[in-house]
Nucleic acid binder design. Structure first.
Length: 502
RNA sequence: GCGGUCGUGGUCUAGUGGUUAUGAUUUCGGCCUUCCACGCCGAAUACCCGGGUUCGAAUCCCGGCGACCGCACCA
């Protein structure tokens, strides 16, 4: 009963109590793999999204943001390959038990079954007279258990699916965006939104969920210019940790997954051809710069070159940004060089022209795709900025970077006296008018209020005390040091701005 | 999906067949006039769901749901 509580459990307890996140439909027992964000979690999430947009969309006049729907007709996923490949092969017995047949075959016959077609698997079932592991009844044909959520649309119940990634909308609207914006290669199309995957077993809070949020960009590039990335110079000296395929093979020989990484600059990664092209190298550096703002130390961020068997045949190289969590290294961003696979597939599927003309020549752009998992990044921030209670502070708190914190400051009248409250309210309103996110709290003893503010990572607390009435000054308490400094009331709101905070 | 552990107020928790179901904290009301959850009084709120065993179930059994850990899975 009194198991040692894991970091994940501790973080989740605070999240529940303080309205960061909680299970969806919790009052009905919840549904595995679904979480809602509460008021505090939503603010942090909005801040994260804002930071992302600022760096990747607003700062680049060649990146256009769209907002696509989550339900798309089945032809889209026929063309993209998800209907055929984004599945687990399963077999059903006469009593209706469904079994992962590839796993069962590997277990019973001791042969690798991954990548075999449904027919091949069905033949193996016949040949070896494999029966249902639950009840012993014969197994029927092998079917694909889709990892996509299906639905039906309209009076004729036309089959459709919830998108398993945001990317497809970008390829579908590619021609519209390009012509509407008169975009020239290279350009990017960004999208922030929800995606859905019917995971077999969701795990670890919001790290593996069935409904999740992504921030993606598809960069469309002239295949002849893959080594001319417009922001390469900006990121070329950024240092990254790379786990090479060579290193993974070496580790595999020792049957270990404890990879060591090579530290090198973006420029080196490109010049020594650790990455397929300059665009990919630049994107990795771009992401390191982004992560510097999130309070996650660089030492626990690495890029892993995905092994060939982990990537689809059309991939020109995938690099996952992985973060070390309390439960191991986990992908939070997938970076994929997809060549022209997506546009080609949809040209074939739709019979529409999706190539564009460059200097009189028809070009099907290549695609480099950084795909950020919002929920996973948020959880990484929670776990890595969490500070458990210790001797120096009797409560746990979050050391959120100021521009991610749910509020910039909390305004506190030290005493419940009308004169103090009046001044506190003034500061509060003035700060709000200046666009600051501030909270007002006059309930309970002062230490309690500091603790409450720390617990959701508010970086500054302004306390109005009796001295304020004499000399128009108030104290600002710094969350990280718990120390206080006194400032004149006039200057206080501007001190609270995140840009003024280290 | 398999195996292990577990499910009691918002949160943490006591409770091995009969209890007004423990305590803390939180929240609310009042007092206190206060600088780091540690002044006082009062109030509110809980046995995950469904079956079964039993005179009687939070407690035992079965099933479901959910959580954590391990394995598998994660184009």
């Amino acid at each position: 009963m009194n198991m040692p509580r894991s970091l994940l459990e501790e973080v989740m307890t605070v999240s529940l109590r303080r309205g960061i996140l909680y299970p969806s439909a919790e009052i009905y027992g919840g549904l595995a793999g679904f979480y809602d964000f509460g008021p505090i979690g939503t603010r942090i999430r909005n801040n994260l999204i804002h930071l992302w947009k600022t760096q990747f969309v607003e700062a680049r006049d060649y990146v256009y943001e769209i907002s696509g729907n989550t339900i798309l007709p089945s032809q889209v996923f026929k063309a993209s390959g998800h209907l055929d490949h984004f599945t687990d092969p399963s077999a059903e017995c006469s009593k209706g038990h469904v079994t992962r047949i590839d796993q069962l075959i590997e277990e019973l016959l001791k042969i690798p079954a991954e990548g075999k077609s449904n027919d091949e698997l069905a033949n193996l079932v016949m040949e070896h007279k494999i029966r249902c592991p639950v009840c012993g009844e014969p197994l029927r044909g092998v079917k694909s258990f889709g990892l996509m959520f299906g639905t039906n649309v309209g009076g004729d119940r036309r089959q459709a699916f919830l998108r398993p990634e945001t990317a497809q909308n970008i390829f579908l609207g590619f021609k519209r965006v390009q012509t509407a914006m008169r975009a020239k290669l290279p350009f990017g199309v960004a999208q922030i939104g929800r995606s859905y995957r019917n995971e077999i077993s969701p795990r670890q809070s919001i790290v593996r969920v069935r409904e999740f949020n992504q921030m993606e960009i598809e960069y469309f590039i002239d295949p002849r210019s893959l080594n001319e990335c417009p922001f390469f110079d900006m990121v070329s000296n950024v240092s990254i940790n790379l786990v090479t395929r060579e290193e993974q093979n070496k580790a595999a020989e020792k049957s270990s997954t404890d990879y060591s990484s090579t530290q090198l600059t973006v420029k080196e990664a490109f010049e020594k051809q650790f990455v397929p092209n300059q665009w990919m190298a630049s994107i990795l550096g771009d992401e390191m710069i982004f992560f510097q703002q999130l309070g996650i130390p660089a030492e626990i961020i690495r890029f892993r070159h995905m092994r060939p068997e982990e990537t689809p045949h059309y991939s020109g190289g995938n690099f996952d940004l992985e973060i070390q969590f309390s439960f191991g290294w986990k992908e939070v961003i997938g970076n994929a060089y997809r060549r022209d696979h997506d546009l080609q597939s949809h040209m074939k599927g739709s019979q529409k022209e999706l190539s564009i003309e460059v200097e009189g020549e028809k070009i099907t752009p290549h695609v480099v795709e950084p795909s950020f998992g919002i929920d996973r990044i948020l959880y990484a921030i929670l776990e890595h900025t969490y500070r458990p209670k210790d001797k120096s502070r009797g409560w746990s708190w979050f050391q959120f970077p100021p521009n991610l914190a749910p509020y910039h400051a909390v305004i506190l009248p030290l005493l419940n006296r009308p004169e103090l409250e009046e001044v506190a309210k003034e500061i509060y309103e003035k700060s709000r008018k200046m666009g600051l996110a501030v909270l007002y709290d006059d309930r309970g003893r002062i230490g309690r209020r500091y603790a409450r503010a720390d617990e959701i990572g508010i970086p500054k607390a302004v306390t109005i005390d009796p001295q304020t009435l004499d000399d128009d000054t108030a104290t600002i308490r710094n969350r990280d040091s718990a120390s206080q400094t006194r400032h004149s009331l006039k200057k206080i709101p501007s001190f609270l701005h995140p840009s003024k905070q280290k």
